[in-house]
Simulated scan of single mutants.
Amino acid sequence: MVHRLRPVGIDFVETAPVRLVFAREIAAAPGPVFHALAEDVPGWRSWFAAVTLARSLDDGARREIRLRGGTRLEETVLTAKASELYVYRADATNIPGARALVEEWRLTPAGGGTRVRWTFAAAGTAPFRLAVRSGRAGMGRAFRQAVTTLDERLTGRNA
């Protein structure tokens, strides 16, 4: 069953009760990385293994995402600043106990490539918060694999 989440803003990334932050440097330039994140939403399936469906809605203002294991998300894009920042909020999900979710992808030029930083900001019931914190290692692994695959795809070489 899908339930509505609290409509938080971009500032929630800094104030959320649970914040998981992951970063990795890759060889691809910020422009193509931003394009893959914000403009080629259906392409997420090809580089982020957890994503089974990614669809842009309302001319890119919203997204529909499905993940392995059955998680479903309806999202609103909060900001898309070319080659720098992509932030979206989950408006509805089937994740038990979730009350608010925002994800931020920040891109910074680094060593001829890009430093990709992903922040997962969340609020919810105590069991939900515990589950998110307990899943940190797995989320970190998924992030590293995803950006490595994206880098290989964008640069045409093994990272």
Rank of each mutant, 00 (worst) to 15 (best):
H3R: 13
L5F: 03
L5C: 04
R6P: 02
R6Q: 13
P7Q: 12
G9P: 04
F12D: 01
A16Y: 00
V18G: 01
V18M: 15
L20Q: 15
L20K: 14
F22K: 06
F22W: 04
F22M: 05
A23W: 00
A28D: 00
A29W: 00
F34G: 00
F34H: 13
A38E: 06
V41S: 13
G43R: 12
S46W: 03
S46N: 15
W47S: 00
F48V: 02
A50F: 03
A50Y: 00
V51Q: 04
V51D: 00
T52F: 02
L53Q: 13
A54K: 09
L57I: 09
A61L: 07
I65R: 01
R66P: 03
G69V: 06
R72V: 12
R72A: 13
L73V: 07
T76V: 14
V77C: 11
K81C: 04
K81S: 06
L85D: 12
V87A: 09
Y88G: 12
A92Y: 05
A92L: 15
T93F: 06
I95T: 14
R99D: 09
E103P: 13
E104M: 09
T108G: 11
T108L: 14
A110V: 05
G111F: 10
G112P: 04
G112D: 11
G112R: 05
T114S: 06
V116R: 07
T119F: 02
F120W: 13
A121C: 11
A121E: 01
G124A: 12
G124D: 11
T125R: 13
A126V: 08
A126H: 12
P127S: 08
F128M: 10
F128C: 06
R129H: 07
R129A: 08
A131C: 05
A131Q: 10
V132E: 08
V132W: 08
A137P: 07
M139E: 05
R144K: 13
R144M: 01
R153N: 07
R153Y: 11
T155F: 14
R157N: 10
R157K: 15
N158C: 09
